[in-house]
Nucleic acid binder design. Structure first.
Lengths: 173, 173
DNA sequence: GCATTTTAAGTGAGTAATCACTCATTATTA
DNA sequence: TAATAATGAGTGATTACTCACTTAAAATGC
């Protein structure tokens, strides 16, 4: 990965996040990155390829993000860890996650498949804690965390700390 | 509102929802609506005006949607009603709501202002029910319902009926 | 009630700008 | 020297939008 290639990727990420994929032209990406437009196509074939590279990195980051949760053996601790996740997103990464959400809407991306291991892991945790409807509990919790995550990266949450505490309390964690 | 104007609006709604705002050209809207492209601009000035008209209708629908909740006086019943909302979205309106969510991402739209009356109404309900942290409870519930709504209109929820029941039970409703 | 004028609805060809993408050429590095 | 990185001018297609024009529907005068 050359330096310029990385610059292109980073610039595209920022612009796609700010303006959207279709609203961002390849010429703008090139200009902003201080690079010829041709180079963008040399490295990524076409505009869709550039997007794909960004999405791939997103998936990697996402998996890394929740790997610690899935690996946790103690069910209570596993639930605690996943609830903490949305509140641990670093502020300098808000743009990155915003792009991931944005693109998933723009492209009609279905993420259920990639979420499966996480869903199962949380379901199992609820099961081990003898919740009467583990899979429903898992679904509800994950949707809640999804809503919270989007609100957080949009800076729409006033008091994250106490919101987190409230949620933990609801699951007696 | 002439018949053709309405057709344009409806067609644009469908195309924007399916392909996204920036990915849908005015010529495509016109062609699909069986109308000259010029007419689109006669009625809506520019592409952004067309979008604005759609968003305005969305706001109206949204307010109508939760009007019944805000008007409810009994706090328990008010909570029950708002929890029911996501599960009452008619299937033939999924595309419409999908568009609203999509556009809010695409345009970086901030909806907090429009949600304020709803937030306050729910906060008051929790307060009246003597929850220790009413405003946090309201925020959490609304984010949960937001997450659920998006999942529902994306057809990502397997068992809405029981998910609803579970959520109601959590609030002893 | 009928003719005339004004207003609005609708058309479709045209515009400059921008789009994603190509390619022949040059600079850099292994 | 061979291969890859990088350039930048150029391509046809498409974009949002305009405009001179026609058609249809009200509004007005007699």
């Amino acid at each position: 990965m050359t330096e310029k290639k990385e610059t292109i990727l980073q610039t595209a990420l920022e612009l796609f996040a700010k303006e959207g994929f279709n609203a961002t032209s390849t010429s703008k990406v090139a200009k902003e990155a201080g690079v010829s437009e041709g180079l963008v196509f040399k490295h990524f074939n076409n505009k869709a390829g550039l997007l794909e590279a960004i999405l791939k990195e997103g998936e990697k980051k996402f998996k890394l993000f929740y790997a610690d949760v899935v690996m946790e053996n103690d069910p209570r601790e596993r639930l605690r860890k996943i609830i903490l996740l949305p509140f641990q997103i670093a502020e300098e990464e808000y743009e990155f996650w915003k792009l991931q959400f944005k693109l998933k809407w723009e492209l009609g991306y279905d993420s259920t498949e990639k979420m499966k291991p996480l869903v199962e892991s949380i379901t199992k945790a609820f099961d081990e804690l003898s919740y009467p409807a583990p899979s429903l509990e898992a679904e509800l919790l994950l949707q809640t965390l999804d809503g919270l995550s989007t609100a957080i990266i949009k800076h729409e949450v006033s008091d994250p700390e106490n919101l987190m505490k409230l949620l933990l309390k609801k699951y007696e964690l």
